[in-house]
Amino acid sequence: MKRIAIAIDSLAGGGAEKIVLTLAAELKRLGHAPHLLVLTPHCEYQLPADIPVHFCFDESQKQSDSIWRVSRSVEEVKRWVSEIEAEYGLFDLFLSNLDKTNLLFTQANLSPLFCIVHNSIEEELKRQLKLGPLAYFNMLRAKKSLNGQHLVTVSKGIEREIIACQRISPQSIRTIYNPFDLKDIRGRADELNQAIPDGDFIIHVGRVAKQKRHDILFAALAKMKHQLPLVLLCSNPKKAMKLAKKYGVADRIICPGFQANPFPWIKKARLLALSSDYEGLPTVLLESLICGTPVVSTDCPHGPNEILTGPLADFLSPRRDVDQLSEKMDAALGDYPNMEDIALFEHIEIEKIAKTYLALI
């Protein structure tokens, strides 16, 4: 039995957070002892009953990674981990997820440590630069903390980017795809949910953030020949509706908010659309295909072109191209290739991925 610490900034309703919970559950099923080490107690996902969850900071300590506080935070993290290990035993492996956790865990010199990179580093930095030099510098600190570390990327695209750009010089780097429990997803997709609307609709799953480019999605929706409604599963419906109004599609938007089980919604949809500027390995694209629902996605860095291969590659749209996205969504609603033979399915199977992580020890 191996003791594995899976660390992350929070358990807010994002893709990385969902992957962390999925991996922890599978490690537990395989007879190991995963622990969730969560920096702040912001939780939208339900906490597992059979896996220990430890929180380091309280809600008031949101700036734990700020430059004037980081040294104190690193000492708190060291003390926190020591207390957990004193009670449960030493960890055989630390898996760190997201910027804040990566910054603090690398500086705390925890070992053996692997940092998991969930997104395009270069695209995140470009976006942050638009917010000003301070925001850019803060993110750059977190990215630079990956120097000399063992890295795991969730797609080949991210791995290639890190090697090519040479902004970071890791000690080692390898790709391990995110884990998916195909049987569980399909089973949960069959659960009844009376809130799901009757009739055909398109679906988008993801937080309302600039990266996700809801403006492009709404503009493409307005141009479509098929005038279907769009269901948005997100945790900020007010923000989404305000933007939808700007693009004249508010009357076609259904916004039920964050859903702990999105799979019945995805399965019932005629199409899932992703309009992002960048990703890592977009969880929702794979979940949709597992549920048998067609997808259209921007060909953004990284992940979509590793998922949509062969005939499905026709449903990749250039980034920020409203006309192409609109046309491809209309085309997907008319005719879509077979989704049973997705090449990536064999590389994301949950037990295989969990055992790959265990082999890092």
Results as ranks from 00 to 15, higher is better:
238 K>M: 12
225 K>L: 11
190 D>Q: 15
115 C>P: 10
294 P>Q: 06
173 I>N: 07
312 L>M: 02
171 Q>V: 09
193 N>A: 00
211 Q>A: 12
184 D>Q: 04
190 D>V: 04
359 A>Y: 06
173 I>D: 06
351 E>H: 01
27 L>Y: 04
175 T>V: 01
96 S>F: 04
304 P>D: 01
147 N>W: 03
124 E>Y: 12
223 K>V: 11
266 I>T: 07
261 N>S: 07
174 R>T: 14
65 D>K: 13
270 R>A: 06
96 S>D: 08
310 G>H: 08
197 P>T: 09
177 Y>H: 12
170 P>S: 14
62 K>P: 02
322 V>N: 06
92 D>S: 07
33 A>K: 15
327 E>A: 04
296 V>M: 00
261 N>R: 02
94 F>S: 11
95 L>A: 09
296 V>W: 03
333 L>I: 03
361 I>Q: 10
253 I>V: 14
135 A>S: 10
261 N>P: 07
348 I>G: 02
157 G>T: 09
230 L>Q: 11
35 H>N: 10
108 A>E: 05
213 R>A: 03
184 D>M: 00
255 C>D: 08
195 A>M: 13
55 F>A: 08
26 E>V: 06
73 S>N: 07
20 V>K: 01
121 I>M: 13
275 S>H: 08
317 S>C: 10
150 H>A: 07
163 I>N: 14
181 D>T: 00
100 K>A: 13
346 E>D: 10
355 K>M: 01
315 F>A: 04
165 C>Q: 12
130 K>V: 15
35 H>M: 09
262 P>M: 00
90 L>Y: 10
157 G>Q: 03
62 K>Y: 14
300 C>Q: 13
133 P>N: 08
170 P>D: 09
121 I>F: 13
58 D>L: 06
66 S>R: 13
156 K>C: 11
133 P>A: 11
295 V>Y: 05
122 E>F: 14
140 L>Q: 15
26 E>Q: 08
306 E>K: 07
306 E>A: 01
324 Q>M: 12
15 G>L: 14
49 A>V: 15
271 L>N: 00
71 S>T: 13
168 I>V: 14
316 L>I: 09
204 H>F: 03
305 N>P: 05
340 E>M: 08
40 T>S: 12
92 D>N: 12
3 R>F: 05
61 Q>P: 02
11 L>T: 09
147 N>G: 09
314 D>S: 11
202 I>M: 15
346 E>W: 04
318 P>D: 05
34 P>W: 02
96 S>T: 10
168 I>F: 06
77 V>W: 05
200 D>W: 06
278 Y>H: 13
193 N>K: 04
61 Q>D: 09
80 W>V: 02
301 P>M: 04
111 S>F: 05
47 L>P: 00
151 L>K: 14
172 S>Q: 12
293 T>V: 00
126 K>E: 13
179 P>T: 02
202 I>Q: 10
333 L>W: 02
89 G>N: 00
14 G>Y: 07
306 E>Y: 05
290 I>P: 02
9 D>N: 15
14 G>V: 02
55 F>N: 08
242 K>P: 00
99 D>K: 13
114 F>L: 01
330 D>M: 05
178 N>C: 02
168 I>G: 07
225 K>A: 15
196 I>W: 12
273 A>K: 01
263 F>S: 01
214 H>T: 15
330 D>Y: 01
246 K>F: 09
2 K>C: 05
